[in-house]
Structure formats: structure tokens, C-alpha cells
Amino acid sequence: MPIQLVCSSDGEPREADGVLDLIAAHRRAISELQCLGKRLMHAGEAEAELIGPRLDAAMKNETIIRRQAAMAPVADVGELKIKAAYFKRLINNGWCDVDADDLHELLRSFAELPT
């Protein structure tokens, strides 16, 4: 599997250490989206024009990180349970749109669990 990059808190790309790092990165991406969305809702017209492109970029980043988290191989049953619980919460709480390709990659990562 190719090296997957995740943005650190300062915005610099770094190598992901595994499922837990990708889940943490995805949670940060969702938090950024929520923050920008709230700012956009209360912004004036001039500020909204500045926030719009940032919101679009944040949405694209969230989608990429969510797909990487879905694709990330699980090392053991513990990681499998964590990953399954996280995606279950994403779907049930409506935090983001989990599409069919994400679910396909998620199931494939479970099927490739080392024995």
C-alpha cells in the first residue's frame, strides 16, 4: 500500500502511522468543516466570499482523509473494532456523507485482516 499523507495541526503533510492517526485526522477535518460552516452562516457577504473557497478545500480534504481511513489496513481485531465503531458513528450521527465506495473500501480492509 502506498504511503498515505495526513496533514498535521500546522497544515504540513506527514506520514500516517495507522488507523488511529487517520481517524484522529478525520475528526480534525470534520471539526474544521463545522467551524467554517458556522462562520459562513454568520458571515457578511464579503466575509462569506473569503470563507467559501476555504470551506470547499476543507470538504475536499475531509473526503480524502475519510477514504484513506476506510482503506487503511487493520493490524488486529482491536483496530478493526475501533474502525468499525468510528464509521458506525459517522453513519448514524450524520457527521459526513459516507458513500458506497467508502463502505466498499472499509469492508475490504476488514477482509484483509491478517490471521
Results as ranks from 00 to 15, higher is better:
G11F: 05
E12G: 00
P13L: 11
P13R: 07
R14K: 12
E15F: 07
A16M: 02
D17I: 06
D17M: 03
G18T: 03
V19C: 06
L20Y: 07
L20E: 15
L20H: 09
L22G: 10
A24P: 01
A24E: 11
A25M: 02
R27E: 15
A29R: 14
I30E: 11
I30M: 14
I30Y: 06
E32S: 10
E32V: 09
E32F: 00
Q34P: 00
C35A: 11
L36R: 04
L36G: 03
K38H: 06
R39E: 14
R39L: 15
M41W: 00
H42W: 13
A43S: 09
E45G: 00
E47C: 01
E47I: 02
A48Y: 03
E49K: 07
E49R: 11
I51V: 05
P53Q: 09
P53F: 07
R54E: 15
L55V: 04
L55H: 04
D56T: 10
M59L: 10
K60M: 07
N61G: 07
E62R: 15
T63C: 07
T63M: 02
I65N: 08
R66M: 15
R66I: 00
R67F: 07
Q68N: 15
A69N: 05
A70E: 04
M71N: 04
A72L: 04
P73S: 12
A75I: 09
A75S: 13
D76G: 09
D76Q: 10
L80E: 08
L80F: 05
K81M: 13
K81D: 10
I82W: 01
I82P: 01
I82V: 15
I82L: 14
A84N: 11
A85V: 03
A85C: 04
F87E: 12
F87N: 05
K88Y: 10
R89G: 05
I91T: 12
N92K: 12
N92V: 06
N92T: 13
N93S: 14
G94R: 02
G94T: 03
G94E: 08
C96Y: 00
D97H: 06
D97Q: 06
V98Q: 08
